[in-house]
Write a protein that binds this DNA or RNA. Structure first.
Lengths: 204, 204
DNA sequence: CCTACCGATCGGTAGG
DNA sequence: CCTACCGATCGGTAGG
Protein backbone atom coordinates (compact mmCIF):
# COMPACT_ATOMS: atom_id res chain seq x y z
CA UNK A 1 0.00 0.00 0.00
CA UNK A 2 2.00 3.00 -1.19
CA UNK A 3 -0.26 5.45 0.62
CA UNK A 4 1.73 8.65 1.14
CA UNK A 5 3.92 9.04 -1.98
CA UNK A 6 5.19 12.60 -2.41
CA UNK A 7 2.85 13.73 -5.22
CA UNK A 8 0.12 11.59 -6.74
CA UNK A 9 0.51 13.08 -10.25
CA UNK A 10 2.68 11.13 -12.63
CA UNK A 11 6.34 11.97 -12.03
CA UNK A 12 7.24 11.67 -15.71
CA UNK A 13 4.66 14.32 -16.54
CA UNK A 14 5.87 16.66 -13.79
CA UNK A 15 9.40 16.28 -15.17
CA UNK A 16 8.15 17.27 -18.63
CA UNK A 17 6.34 20.31 -17.24
CA UNK A 18 9.37 21.68 -15.42
CA UNK A 19 11.74 20.76 -18.25
CA UNK A 20 9.51 22.65 -20.70
CA UNK A 21 9.45 25.67 -18.43
CA UNK A 22 13.21 25.73 -17.78
CA UNK A 23 14.24 24.92 -21.37
CA UNK A 24 11.96 27.75 -22.52
CA UNK A 25 13.30 30.19 -19.94
CA UNK A 26 17.05 29.47 -20.04
CA UNK A 27 17.52 27.41 -23.18
CA UNK A 28 18.58 23.77 -23.46
CA UNK A 29 22.24 24.43 -22.59
CA UNK A 30 21.33 26.92 -19.88
CA UNK A 31 18.99 24.63 -17.97
CA UNK A 32 20.79 21.92 -15.98
CA UNK A 33 19.37 18.50 -15.15
CA UNK A 34 20.01 19.25 -11.47
CA UNK A 35 17.78 22.36 -11.61
CA UNK A 36 15.01 20.50 -13.42
CA UNK A 37 15.17 17.55 -11.02
CA UNK A 38 15.06 19.75 -7.93
CA UNK A 39 12.15 21.76 -9.36
CA UNK A 40 10.28 18.44 -9.53
CA UNK A 41 11.43 17.56 -6.03
CA UNK A 42 13.79 14.67 -6.84
CA UNK A 43 17.55 14.23 -7.44
CA UNK A 44 19.31 14.25 -10.77
CA UNK A 45 19.97 10.47 -10.96
CA UNK A 46 16.26 9.85 -10.38
CA UNK A 47 15.41 12.08 -13.33
CA UNK A 48 17.93 10.15 -15.44
CA UNK A 49 16.11 6.95 -14.54
CA UNK A 50 12.94 8.26 -16.25
CA UNK A 51 14.74 9.94 -19.17
CA UNK A 52 18.14 8.28 -19.70
CA UNK A 53 19.86 11.34 -21.15
CA UNK A 54 19.38 15.08 -21.50
CA UNK A 55 18.88 14.68 -25.25
CA UNK A 56 16.12 12.13 -24.71
CA UNK A 57 14.46 14.56 -22.30
CA UNK A 58 14.63 17.25 -24.97
CA UNK A 59 12.97 14.91 -27.45
CA UNK A 60 10.26 13.96 -24.95
CA UNK A 61 9.51 17.61 -24.17
CA UNK A 62 9.13 18.40 -27.87
CA UNK A 63 7.00 15.31 -28.52
CA UNK A 64 4.75 16.21 -25.58
CA UNK A 65 4.22 19.70 -26.97
CA UNK A 66 3.38 18.35 -30.43
CA UNK A 67 0.95 15.86 -28.89
CA UNK A 68 -0.99 18.70 -27.26
CA UNK A 69 -0.99 20.46 -30.65
CA UNK A 70 -2.28 17.35 -32.40
CA UNK A 71 -5.04 17.03 -29.80
CA UNK A 72 -6.26 20.43 -30.97
CA UNK A 73 -6.04 19.96 -34.70
CA UNK A 74 -8.90 17.67 -35.75
CA UNK A 75 -11.68 19.61 -34.05
CA UNK A 76 -10.06 22.81 -35.30
CA UNK A 77 -10.14 21.77 -38.93
CA UNK A 78 -13.73 20.58 -38.97
CA UNK A 79 -15.07 23.34 -36.73
CA UNK A 80 -15.99 26.13 -39.09
CA UNK A 81 -17.58 25.99 -42.51
CA UNK A 82 -17.26 29.33 -44.28
CA UNK A 83 -13.80 30.25 -45.59
CA UNK A 84 -13.53 33.29 -43.35
CA UNK A 85 -14.90 31.42 -40.36
CA UNK A 86 -12.43 28.60 -40.98
CA UNK A 87 -9.60 31.08 -41.04
CA UNK A 88 -10.69 32.75 -37.79
CA UNK A 89 -10.94 29.36 -36.11
CA UNK A 90 -7.51 28.23 -37.23
CA UNK A 91 -5.50 31.33 -36.41
CA UNK A 92 -7.54 32.02 -33.28
CA UNK A 93 -6.95 28.53 -31.90
CA UNK A 94 -3.25 28.73 -32.79
CA UNK A 95 -2.92 31.97 -30.87
CA UNK A 96 -4.89 30.54 -27.96
CA UNK A 97 -2.75 27.37 -27.87
CA UNK A 98 0.46 29.38 -27.61
CA UNK A 99 -0.92 32.12 -25.34
CA UNK A 100 -2.31 29.55 -22.91
CA UNK A 101 1.32 28.65 -22.16
CA UNK A 102 3.80 31.10 -23.75
CA UNK A 103 6.62 28.69 -22.89
CA UNK A 104 5.41 26.65 -25.84
CA UNK A 105 6.24 29.49 -28.22
CA UNK A 106 9.56 30.21 -26.53
CA UNK A 107 10.57 26.55 -26.60
CA UNK A 108 9.65 26.14 -30.27
CA UNK A 109 11.56 29.28 -31.25
CA UNK A 110 14.63 28.11 -29.32
CA UNK A 111 14.48 24.68 -30.95
CA UNK A 112 14.28 26.27 -34.39
CA UNK A 113 17.35 28.38 -33.56
CA UNK A 114 19.29 25.52 -31.95
CA UNK A 115 18.57 22.78 -34.49
CA UNK A 116 17.19 24.26 -37.71
CA UNK A 117 17.72 21.11 -39.74
CA UNK A 118 16.05 18.69 -37.32
CA UNK A 119 13.17 21.11 -36.75
CA UNK A 120 12.79 21.59 -40.49
CA UNK A 121 12.15 17.89 -40.93
CA UNK A 122 9.85 17.80 -37.91
CA UNK A 123 7.82 20.75 -39.19
CA UNK A 124 7.65 19.17 -42.61
CA UNK A 125 6.22 15.95 -41.14
CA UNK A 126 3.88 17.38 -38.47
CA UNK A 127 2.79 20.77 -39.79
CA UNK A 128 2.83 20.42 -43.56
CA UNK A 129 -0.48 18.50 -43.79
CA UNK A 130 -2.63 21.16 -42.18
CA UNK A 131 -0.73 23.93 -43.92
CA UNK A 132 -1.81 22.32 -47.18
CA UNK A 133 -5.42 22.36 -46.04
CA UNK A 134 -5.25 26.06 -45.22
CA UNK A 135 -3.56 26.72 -48.56
CA UNK A 136 -6.41 25.00 -50.38
CA UNK A 137 -8.92 27.24 -48.61
CA UNK A 138 -6.86 30.28 -49.59
CA UNK A 139 -6.75 29.20 -53.25
CA UNK A 140 -10.49 28.55 -53.21
CA UNK A 141 -10.99 32.03 -51.78
CA UNK A 142 -8.84 33.47 -54.56
CA UNK A 143 -11.02 31.77 -57.19
CA UNK A 144 -14.15 33.12 -55.49
CA UNK A 145 -12.65 36.60 -55.27
CA UNK A 146 -12.78 36.87 -51.47
CA UNK A 147 -9.00 36.60 -51.10
CA UNK A 148 -6.41 38.94 -52.63
CA UNK A 149 -5.09 37.47 -55.90
CA UNK A 150 -1.44 38.28 -55.09
CA UNK A 151 -1.28 36.18 -51.90
CA UNK A 152 1.29 33.35 -52.14
CA UNK A 153 -0.50 30.74 -50.00
CA UNK A 154 2.45 28.72 -48.60
CA UNK A 155 4.54 31.82 -47.93
CA UNK A 156 1.54 33.58 -46.38
CA UNK A 157 0.83 30.72 -43.95
CA UNK A 158 4.48 30.31 -42.97
CA UNK A 159 4.77 34.04 -42.29
CA UNK A 160 1.63 33.93 -40.17
CA UNK A 161 3.07 31.05 -38.17
CA UNK A 162 6.31 32.98 -37.67
CA UNK A 163 4.39 36.04 -36.64
CA UNK A 164 2.19 34.29 -34.09
CA UNK A 165 5.17 32.45 -32.64
CA UNK A 166 7.40 35.48 -32.21
CA UNK A 167 4.52 37.68 -31.05
CA UNK A 168 3.77 35.32 -28.15
CA UNK A 169 7.41 34.51 -27.41
CA UNK A 170 8.48 38.15 -27.20
CA UNK A 171 5.30 39.25 -25.45
CA UNK A 172 7.03 39.99 -22.12
CA UNK A 173 9.79 41.94 -23.78
CA UNK A 174 7.68 44.14 -26.03
CA UNK A 175 4.95 44.90 -23.54
CA UNK A 176 7.32 47.44 -22.01
CA UNK A 177 6.99 49.36 -25.27
CA UNK A 178 3.79 51.23 -24.67
CA UNK A 179 1.11 51.75 -22.10
CA UNK A 180 -1.49 50.02 -24.27
CA UNK A 181 -3.57 47.06 -23.21
CA UNK A 182 -1.62 43.82 -22.90
CA UNK A 183 -3.42 42.10 -25.79
CA UNK A 184 -3.39 45.05 -28.19
CA UNK A 185 -0.39 43.55 -29.99
CA UNK A 186 -2.17 40.25 -30.45
CA UNK A 187 -5.34 41.96 -31.71
CA UNK A 188 -3.26 43.92 -34.22
CA UNK A 189 -1.61 40.64 -35.28
CA UNK A 190 -5.03 39.21 -36.14
CA UNK A 191 -5.93 42.38 -38.01
CA UNK A 192 -2.70 42.23 -40.05
CA UNK A 193 -3.25 38.57 -40.91
CA UNK A 194 -6.84 39.12 -42.04
CA UNK A 195 -6.34 42.47 -43.74
CA UNK A 196 -3.49 41.11 -45.88
CA UNK A 197 -5.53 38.05 -46.86
CA UNK A 198 -9.17 39.03 -47.45
CA UNK A 199 -10.38 41.66 -49.84
CA UNK A 200 -12.55 44.24 -48.10
CA UNK A 201 -16.23 44.41 -48.95
CA UNK A 202 -15.96 47.80 -50.59
CA UNK A 203 -13.40 46.35 -53.04
CA UNK A 204 -15.63 43.57 -54.32
CA UNK B 1 59.36 46.25 -35.81
CA UNK B 2 56.40 43.89 -35.37
CA UNK B 3 56.47 42.80 -38.99
CA UNK B 4 54.71 39.42 -39.17
CA UNK B 5 51.88 39.60 -36.63
CA UNK B 6 49.28 36.88 -37.21
CA UNK B 7 46.43 38.97 -38.71
CA UNK B 8 46.59 42.71 -39.33
CA UNK B 9 42.83 43.26 -38.68
CA UNK B 10 41.95 44.39 -35.19
CA UNK B 11 41.80 41.40 -32.85
CA UNK B 12 38.99 42.87 -30.77
CA UNK B 13 36.84 43.13 -33.87
CA UNK B 14 37.62 39.59 -34.97
CA UNK B 15 36.61 38.40 -31.50
CA UNK B 16 33.28 40.21 -31.85
CA UNK B 17 32.66 38.66 -35.28
CA UNK B 18 33.22 35.09 -34.11
CA UNK B 19 31.40 35.67 -30.83
CA UNK B 20 28.38 37.00 -32.74
CA UNK B 21 28.42 33.99 -35.04
CA UNK B 22 28.77 31.41 -32.25
CA UNK B 23 26.32 33.08 -29.83
CA UNK B 24 23.81 33.19 -32.70
CA UNK B 25 24.39 29.57 -33.68
CA UNK B 26 24.60 27.86 -30.28
CA UNK B 27 23.28 30.45 -27.84
CA UNK B 28 25.17 32.27 -25.10
CA UNK B 29 25.35 29.27 -22.77
CA UNK B 30 26.09 26.87 -25.62
CA UNK B 31 29.08 28.78 -26.99
CA UNK B 32 32.21 28.46 -24.85
CA UNK B 33 34.96 31.07 -24.58
CA UNK B 34 37.46 28.40 -25.64
CA UNK B 35 35.57 27.80 -28.92
CA UNK B 36 35.32 31.53 -29.65
CA UNK B 37 39.00 32.13 -28.84
CA UNK B 38 40.19 29.28 -31.04
CA UNK B 39 37.96 30.41 -33.91
CA UNK B 40 39.84 33.72 -33.70
CA UNK B 41 43.16 31.87 -33.49
CA UNK B 42 44.12 32.71 -29.90
CA UNK B 43 43.77 31.08 -26.46
CA UNK B 44 41.01 31.65 -23.94
CA UNK B 45 43.08 33.78 -21.48
CA UNK B 46 44.03 36.07 -24.37
CA UNK B 47 40.38 36.61 -25.17
CA UNK B 48 39.72 37.39 -21.51
CA UNK B 49 42.41 40.06 -21.70
CA UNK B 50 40.36 41.93 -24.33
CA UNK B 51 36.94 41.24 -22.75
CA UNK B 52 37.40 40.54 -19.03
CA UNK B 53 34.34 38.29 -18.66
CA UNK B 54 31.86 36.37 -20.78
CA UNK B 55 29.10 38.77 -19.76
CA UNK B 56 31.14 41.77 -20.90
CA UNK B 57 31.71 40.01 -24.23
CA UNK B 58 27.95 39.52 -24.54
CA UNK B 59 27.41 43.20 -23.92
CA UNK B 60 30.07 44.19 -26.45
CA UNK B 61 28.56 41.91 -29.11
CA UNK B 62 25.14 43.46 -28.59
CA UNK B 63 26.52 47.01 -28.56
CA UNK B 64 28.44 46.32 -31.78
CA UNK B 65 25.27 45.11 -33.48
CA UNK B 66 23.31 48.17 -32.35
CA UNK B 67 26.12 50.43 -33.58
CA UNK B 68 25.80 48.95 -37.09
CA UNK B 69 22.05 49.53 -36.84
CA UNK B 70 22.53 53.14 -35.77
CA UNK B 71 24.91 53.68 -38.69
CA UNK B 72 22.00 52.83 -40.96
CA UNK B 73 19.27 54.86 -39.33
CA UNK B 74 19.89 58.51 -40.17
CA UNK B 75 20.22 58.08 -43.93
CA UNK B 76 17.27 55.72 -43.79
CA UNK B 77 14.95 58.22 -42.15
CA UNK B 78 15.74 61.13 -44.45
CA UNK B 79 15.95 59.03 -47.62
CA UNK B 80 12.41 58.99 -48.94
CA UNK B 81 9.81 61.75 -48.99
CA UNK B 82 6.40 60.29 -49.81
CA UNK B 83 4.69 58.27 -47.04
CA UNK B 84 4.69 55.06 -49.09
CA UNK B 85 8.26 55.61 -50.27
CA UNK B 86 9.35 56.23 -46.67
CA UNK B 87 7.73 53.00 -45.61
CA UNK B 88 9.37 51.00 -48.39
CA UNK B 89 12.77 52.46 -47.47
CA UNK B 90 12.41 51.69 -43.78
CA UNK B 91 11.14 48.14 -43.97
CA UNK B 92 13.33 47.34 -46.97
CA UNK B 93 16.49 48.53 -45.22
CA UNK B 94 15.51 46.66 -42.06
CA UNK B 95 15.12 43.45 -44.02
CA UNK B 96 18.38 44.08 -45.86
CA UNK B 97 20.25 44.79 -42.60
CA UNK B 98 19.16 41.49 -41.09
CA UNK B 99 19.39 39.44 -44.29
CA UNK B 100 22.93 40.70 -44.94
CA UNK B 101 23.94 38.74 -41.82
CA UNK B 102 21.12 36.50 -40.52
CA UNK B 103 23.15 35.94 -37.34
CA UNK B 104 22.01 39.42 -36.33
CA UNK B 105 18.39 38.29 -36.29
CA UNK B 106 19.21 35.03 -34.53
CA UNK B 107 21.28 36.80 -31.88
CA UNK B 108 18.59 39.41 -31.22
CA UNK B 109 15.88 36.76 -30.91
CA UNK B 110 18.02 34.75 -28.49
CA UNK B 111 18.73 37.82 -26.39
CA UNK B 112 15.03 38.62 -26.21
CA UNK B 113 14.35 35.05 -25.06
CA UNK B 114 17.27 34.94 -22.61
CA UNK B 115 16.87 38.35 -21.01
CA UNK B 116 13.44 39.81 -21.79
CA UNK B 117 13.66 42.51 -19.14
CA UNK B 118 17.10 43.85 -20.08
CA UNK B 119 16.22 43.73 -23.78
CA UNK B 120 12.94 45.50 -23.09
CA UNK B 121 14.82 48.45 -21.63
CA UNK B 122 17.39 48.36 -24.42
CA UNK B 123 14.68 48.34 -27.08
CA UNK B 124 12.88 51.14 -25.32
CA UNK B 125 16.02 53.30 -25.37
CA UNK B 126 17.41 52.45 -28.82
CA UNK B 127 14.38 51.61 -30.94
CA UNK B 128 11.55 53.68 -29.50
CA UNK B 129 12.61 56.97 -31.14
CA UNK B 130 12.43 55.77 -34.73
CA UNK B 131 9.31 53.73 -34.00
CA UNK B 132 7.68 57.01 -32.99
CA UNK B 133 8.70 58.55 -36.29
CA UNK B 134 7.16 55.69 -38.26
CA UNK B 135 4.03 55.93 -36.14
CA UNK B 136 3.68 59.61 -36.99
CA UNK B 137 3.87 58.80 -40.70
CA UNK B 138 1.21 56.14 -40.23
CA UNK B 139 -1.09 58.55 -38.41
CA UNK B 140 -0.55 61.16 -41.10
CA UNK B 141 -1.44 58.53 -43.69
CA UNK B 142 -4.60 57.72 -41.78
CA UNK B 143 -5.64 61.40 -41.83
CA UNK B 144 -4.94 61.54 -45.57
CA UNK B 145 -6.88 58.34 -46.17
CA UNK B 146 -3.97 56.37 -47.65
CA UNK B 147 -3.66 54.11 -44.59
CA UNK B 148 -6.40 51.86 -43.18
CA UNK B 149 -8.20 53.62 -40.32
CA UNK B 150 -8.16 50.55 -38.06
CA UNK B 151 -4.35 50.24 -37.90
CA UNK B 152 -2.97 50.61 -34.36
CA UNK B 153 0.36 52.27 -35.19
CA UNK B 154 2.57 51.11 -32.28
CA UNK B 155 1.21 47.58 -32.36
CA UNK B 156 1.54 47.47 -36.14
CA UNK B 157 5.21 48.49 -36.09
CA UNK B 158 6.11 46.11 -33.29
CA UNK B 159 4.43 43.23 -35.10
CA UNK B 160 6.31 44.11 -38.28
CA UNK B 161 9.58 44.10 -36.35
CA UNK B 162 8.73 40.70 -34.86
CA UNK B 163 7.79 39.39 -38.27
CA UNK B 164 10.97 40.53 -40.01
CA UNK B 165 13.12 39.23 -37.17
CA UNK B 166 11.59 35.77 -37.01
CA UNK B 167 11.33 35.51 -40.78
CA UNK B 168 15.08 36.01 -41.20
CA UNK B 169 16.04 34.00 -38.10
CA UNK B 170 14.00 30.96 -39.10
CA UNK B 171 14.87 31.27 -42.77
CA UNK B 172 17.06 28.13 -42.85
CA UNK B 173 14.46 26.08 -41.05
CA UNK B 174 11.44 27.03 -43.09
CA UNK B 175 13.08 26.95 -46.49
CA UNK B 176 12.73 23.16 -46.34
CA UNK B 177 8.99 23.75 -46.48
CA UNK B 178 8.45 24.16 -50.18
CA UNK B 179 10.30 24.14 -53.45
CA UNK B 180 9.68 27.87 -53.95
CA UNK B 181 12.38 30.45 -54.51
CA UNK B 182 14.48 31.21 -51.44
CA UNK B 183 13.24 34.78 -51.09
CA UNK B 184 9.56 34.10 -51.75
CA UNK B 185 8.89 34.15 -48.00
CA UNK B 186 10.54 37.53 -47.65
CA UNK B 187 8.64 38.95 -50.62
CA UNK B 188 5.38 37.72 -49.11
CA UNK B 189 6.40 39.36 -45.81
CA UNK B 190 6.69 42.71 -47.57
CA UNK B 191 3.33 42.16 -49.26
CA UNK B 192 1.66 41.34 -45.92
CA UNK B 193 3.17 44.42 -44.27
CA UNK B 194 2.06 46.76 -47.06
CA UNK B 195 -1.31 45.18 -47.76
CA UNK B 196 -2.33 45.41 -44.09
CA UNK B 197 -1.23 49.05 -43.90
CA UNK B 198 -2.15 50.87 -47.11
CA UNK B 199 -5.59 51.09 -48.61
CA UNK B 200 -5.67 49.84 -52.19
CA UNK B 201 -6.32 52.33 -54.96
CA UNK B 202 -9.66 50.81 -55.88
CA UNK B 203 -10.86 51.45 -52.32
CA UNK B 204 -10.18 55.15 -52.33
C1' DC C 1 14.13 6.64 -5.73
C1' DC C 2 18.79 7.64 -3.19
C1' DT C 3 24.22 8.61 -2.06
C1' DA C 4 28.59 8.67 -3.85
C1' DC C 5 31.37 9.33 -7.41
C1' DC C 6 33.36 9.77 -12.44
C1' DG C 7 35.97 12.46 -16.18
C1' DA C 8 35.21 16.53 -18.88
C1' DT C 9 34.52 21.10 -19.38
C1' DC C 10 33.10 25.51 -17.76
C1' DG C 11 34.50 30.73 -16.73
C1' DG C 12 38.18 32.87 -14.77
C1' DT C 13 43.06 33.84 -12.45
C1' DA C 14 48.26 33.86 -11.58
C1' DG C 15 52.24 35.02 -13.37
C1' DG C 16 55.15 36.03 -16.77
C1' DC D 1 49.75 37.11 -26.02
C1' DC D 2 51.05 32.46 -23.59
C1' DT D 3 51.23 28.08 -20.07
C1' DA D 4 49.59 26.33 -16.00
C1' DC D 5 46.20 26.00 -12.92
C1' DC D 6 41.82 27.05 -9.87
C1' DG D 7 37.12 25.64 -7.90
C1' DA D 8 32.58 24.82 -9.64
C1' DT D 9 29.47 22.55 -12.28
C1' DC D 10 28.23 19.78 -16.15
C1' DG D 11 25.93 15.12 -17.92
C1' DG D 12 26.09 10.60 -16.67
C1' DT D 13 27.21 5.96 -13.95
C1' DA D 14 27.73 2.46 -10.07
C1' DG D 15 25.48 0.25 -6.83
C1' DG D 16 22.06 -0.40 -3.82
Amino acid sequence: MPAAKAQPVDVRERILEHATRLFAKRGFEGASLKDIAEAVGIRKPSLLYHYPSKDELRGAVLAHLLDRWNDLLPRLLVAATSPEGQFDAVIGETVRFLTEDPDRARLLLREVLDRPQAMGKLIHDHVRPWVNIICNYIRKGQQQGTVHADVVPEAYVVNCMSLVLSNVATHDCLRSFGAEAADSYTRELLRIAKSSLFRRREEI
